[in-house]
Amino acid sequence: MKPFQTVVSKAAPLDLPNVDTDQIIPKQFLKRVERTGFGQYLFFDWRFKDDGQENPDFVLNKPEYKGAKILLARDNFGCGSSREHAPWALLDYGFQVIIAPSFADIFYNNCFQNGILPIKLPPDQVDTLFQLVQERPDTEFVVDLEKQTITGGGITISFEIDKERKEKLLKGLDDIAWTLQFEDAIKEYENTHTIY
């Protein structure tokens, strides 16, 4: 996992609640056995029309939002299937930060495992950002994880994040290595508990 660095980018507004992982990456693309290459299928059914042409009405296809590394979303983003292909696809497509009022649990977790920063903000602040981005799509934001701030369009918003998760994102640390330090404790557990 790469260490998370400050992101400077436009933001793309996906103005829908309950965006589920089936939409983020439709199941017909789950059959790869590698971790990479999923970006081309991100939001496939929304991004492309039946004939394979780009759907010009979908927000990610609008020229003003192309290249955005920040995704602005609504409530319960990432609900549904636990597929980690969803964060892989988002990351592969170029998103490094997702901002929403709430996330589905598994998806939220999966983001950290893959170096994506999911930011939870109160609904009124998310509204403000949506308004800003919809009125002035070219607004550049600076997402600084160290300082826990989002700055852009003349405003600065602070966000909360779990201390250890922040550390790990910043260092690009792998969870498994962390756990394996406690081999003795795990052994001790195994010696004292019966599994039927």
Partner: peptide, 11 residues
């Protein structure tokens, strides 16, 4: 998620 599957397999 798959990263956690890997985590459980390993630990």
């Amino acid at each position: 998620g798959t990263s956690e599957v890997e985590h459980v397999l390993a630990t």
